[in-house]
Amino acid sequence: MTAPFPMQDATPAELGLDASRLERLCDRIEADIAAGHHPGAQVAVARHGRIALFRTFGQARQGVAARPDTLWLLYSNTKVITAAALWALAEDGLIRLTDTVAQHLPGFEAHGKGGITFIQLLTHQAGFPSAEVPATAWEDPAILREVVCSFPLEWEPGSFVRYHPATAHWVAAAVIRAVTGEDHRAYIRRRIIAPLGLGDELFVGLPAEEQARAADMHDVDGTVRMPEGSAAGRAAGIPGGGGYGTARAMAGFYQALVNGGSLNGQRILSRRMVAYAIRNYTADRLDDYNGVAMHRGLGPHLRGETPLARGLGAIAHPRTFGHGGVGSSYCWGDPDSGVSFAFLSNTRQTDEFHGPRMDTISTLAHTAII
């Protein structure tokens, strides 16, 4: 039996939001679908522990309408969920985020990686952004540990900020197993997702019985992307890019973070731990991957005060934090207003389209705050 969702619905006005601005946001999503930019999408906006907007658009798969319970590939939005698992390890006294990774994953010190801290790992300063984890390691923890420990350095840790698309969070998965004895998928579900009441709508590792709910992820030309669309890819729980969820589940996850670690009375993290995680650790240093300042926290990035922004909305409060999923999605929370936002779609669009699209949609959400 499906449990009730942990956040109740409310009208925008009840939550101090402008309904007309949220309708403009939805109009933009509908226009993009009509123009063929993606077959389907879902959006949610929440505040003060309640949902002001939750709407589903278009098709999940060819000929299959998207539904409220459709699960969308989160891509790198998954990174913040995995990062929160490391915050929880620190919260429980099992690691310190200032520790070196090798203190908790012996063997990781190989090839000059002994000094890399969890802070460097989570702020994309570790020095191995281009390393690869083969599919053979997805379900074999011994292979995974061997692979991540053998990563070679590309530059001195801490000397650059460069986005690590997958490798840093595979290291996090190996650490979770080394410290707890649990598979990272099981630990994330037990420690982060289930206590928040999001277990029916948020997954890192999609079980076989839930895969029929998954939307296909398409390329710009409309083809279904692989291995993202394979059963093995969905089940793997790729910690930097393989989660699945609904928009309201992601809005709920960020509600917990903007509320200092709790949702609907259920606490997963202390207020101080969340505040520590969403500090700006990289100041205005440029991320060498995309050429803009990302203001990295320990998982999410922050809006900051530089002119250019990624996905969070140009007019966002500087403390707004969140993450995107390549070409397809963005989720964020605003501690100043208490608003959280999630937009998920099922096409991996070009940066030239996705960046301006998300700036517009996120900005419309910010303008709705009364």
Rank of each mutant, 00 (worst) to 15 (best):
E146A: 07
P207Q: 13
P134M: 04
E352Q: 09
G197W: 04
S329V: 06
E156M: 07
P335N: 06
G115A: 08
P4V: 07
R348H: 13
P227V: 10
G205K: 06
Y244K: 08
A214I: 04
D183R: 07
A13L: 12
A41T: 08
E109G: 12
I176N: 00
A293W: 09
A293G: 04
V171I: 15
G127Q: 07
H169K: 12
T2R: 14
Q59I: 05
A293M: 03
C26D: 10
W72R: 03
R348V: 08
D351S: 14
V133H: 04
I268L: 00
A83Y: 07
D219Y: 08
A214V: 10
Y289V: 06
L86C: 04
H317D: 06
D18N: 15
M7P: 10
V179W: 02
L71S: 01
H38G: 07
Y187N: 02
G260H: 11
T100Q: 07
T306K: 06
E30C: 10
A247V: 10
G237L: 13
R50H: 05
W155L: 06
L86N: 01
T350G: 10
G205H: 08
K113S: 05
A275S: 14
S270V: 06
G333C: 00
V80D: 03
I370S: 08
D200T: 09
A66E: 01
D284G: 14
I188R: 01
I29G: 12
